[in-house]
Design a protein around this nucleic acid. Structure first.
Length: 461
RNA sequence: GCGACUAUAGUUUAGUGGUAAAACACGGGUUUGUGGUACCUGUGUCACGAGUUCGAUUCUCGUUAGUCGCCCCA
């Protein structure tokens, strides 16, 4: 009576049959370069990433999302089943290859599919619902690089599974909005609903028959898109296409009562909190798993042309079932962090670094250096932002570094000071110097950096 | 995947058919104890490969990479 198990997919007998080849790694005398679309994010740019790494967990924690690490490599079939076979992401942008065992694997092009897989694999349906997860990490798509578009790019995303309440849709949008807002980026949400799969099917039928009557106004490329997925024509940037679409049926007019109610409820929450959004009936998303609410985050002053969405998301009530789990409603969003950084760089006020050195310990000679190192450790343990330049020997260089790093005080320790058991504290702003006994240094420095002191002596710049 | 443009020091740029210049940045120094100014000094196989030429960093072609548009997406 046991249901017949499907025979396990035949293991490919020989690697050769699977097309696995031993790759000879070419020897090159050229200086190595990063591969196309991949790049180093250098220390000068890390200040932006520091803020992102600070704000992302703040937002996630505030809404009770738990962090999850997901593998960068997955079975390629995961994405075919989730993102969709006919999507560009899957059929031409995935980093797919066969590993040495003959398995077809892919660098992840996005994380939602992995989240759904993890939810199923680990029986998260037995946890209190909804399960709220967030992640941050690199994604990979084999695309033509452009500004704000790399083959390795980073996403911050939040996913909520096991609950279909519209309040969660709204809350995800609020989170994405707040993330940008906290970083000082003005954004507007674009919101639409794709309804249930049945609604969507019905609408696509109507849209198709309308577009068929307009075929003569569509160019070859548009016709191709139409053949592949008529919905994709809706967000076309082509003016002619948009002209044709003016009289096209709107999806919002073809939602079932239930879908309409869901959307209205989402919008009411957004209205209540005065979150800026636009209802955009032409917003469709490139991933097949979306149902009901979909949204994107655009820069406040961007139009659709030439501007990239900072992020997007929506509801995917059928995905987990598609992947073999139980029917589980879910929703989520992801933000493109390179694009966030681009926005941060556009700001006129540069972001102040999160670590602001306060004091530099300078030393002259071997014995003073040993004492200076001990002093450095002491101040560090006291929580003072102290820096040093122990590899330098002359005072001039050390003061130069103190100046460039913008510390307020340089503590100078030479043979004379060592002998007297003091340091010379130089105020880098006025040039005033005073001697402080070793034992009092930490206390004195702290005193000078209390808030009252900073208020009375506002920082320069 | 398609189309266009670009490629000279770490960066931004000049320049020339006879093997390169400036500014800024960075390192060192201006008699080994005082920074933000000044002066001196160092740092380039002129992206890579081939062709034309007596000779190419300069002209031509190819490759690679970047930028922009399309496609698509974050």
């Amino acid at each position: 009576m046991t249901a017949k198990k499907k025979p396990a997919p035949k293991k490919v007998a020989k690697k050769e049959e699977a097309g696995v080849v031993d790759i000879k790694i070419p020897r090159s005398n050229k200086t190595p370069q990063t591969v196309r679309g991949f790049r180093d994010i250098l220390p000068v740019d890390q200040v932006y990433w520091d803020y992102i790494r600070k704000v992302a967990p703040e937002i996630a924690n505030a809404y009770s999302y738990d962090y999850i690490d997901l593998p960068i490599l997955e079975e390629a079939s995961l994405f075919v089943r989730s993102v969709g076979e006919e999507t560009e992401v899957v059929n031409k942008e995935m980093f797919v290859f066969m590993d040495k065992g003959g398995d077809v694997v892919s660098l992840r092009p996005e994380a939602t599919a992995s989240i759904a897989r993890a939810y199923i694999n680990h029986g998260m349906l037995n946890l209190p619902q909804p399960v709220k997860l967030w992640y941050m990490g690199p994604m990979f798509r084999y695309e033509r690089p452009q500004s704000g578009r790399y083959r390795q790019f980073y996403q911050f995303g939040c996913e909520v599974l096991g609950e279909k309440s519209p309040v969660l849709d709204a809350q995800l949008m609020i989170m994405a909005y707040s993330f940008c807002k906290d970083l000082g980026i003005d954004v507007v949400l674009q919101v639409n609903s794709l309804g249930t799969p049945a609604d969507r099917k019905e609408y696509v039928k109507k849209l198709t028959s309308y577009l068929k009557s307009q075929m003569k106004y569509l160019d070859e490329q548009a016709q191709e898109t139409f053949a592949r997925n008529p919905l994709r024509l809706l967000d076309s940037k082509d003016e002619k296409v948009q002209a044709v679409l003016e009289d096209a049926p709107q999806i919002l007019d073809h939602l079932s009562d239930e879908s309409r109610k869901h959307l209205m409820s989402v919008l009411e929450y957004l209205d209540e909190l005065s979150i800026p959004y636009e209802l955009n009936s032409k917003l469709v998303r490139g991933l097949d798993y979306y149902t009901q609410t979909v949204f994107e985050i655009w820069g406040a002053n961007d139009d659709r042309k030439g501007q990239l969405a900072l992020g997007g998301g929506g509801r995917y009530d059928n995905l987990i079932k598609e992947l073999g789990g139980r029917e589980t409603p879910a929703a989520g969003f992801a933000l493109g962090l390179e694009r966030i950084v681009l926005k941060l760089k556009e700001k006129e006020q540069p972001l102040p670094p999160l670590f602001k050195p306060q004091v530099l310990v300078a030393q002259l000679g071997d014995a003073p250096r040993r004492k200076a190192m001990a002093l450095f450790e002491e101040l560090r343990k006291e929580g003072i932002n102290v820096i040093e330049a122990f590899s330098k020997s002359n005072l001039k260089q050390q003061l130069d570094i103190a100046n460039k790093r913008g510390v307020r005080y340089t503590l100078i320790l030479g043979a004379a000071e060592l002998h007297d058991g003091v340091v010379l504290a130089r105020d880098m702003e006025g040039g005033m110097q005073e001697t402080i006994p070793f034992k009092k240094v930490a206390k004195e420095i702290k005193k000078r950096f209390t808030e009252e002191y900073l208020l009375a002596h506002p920082k320069k710049k």
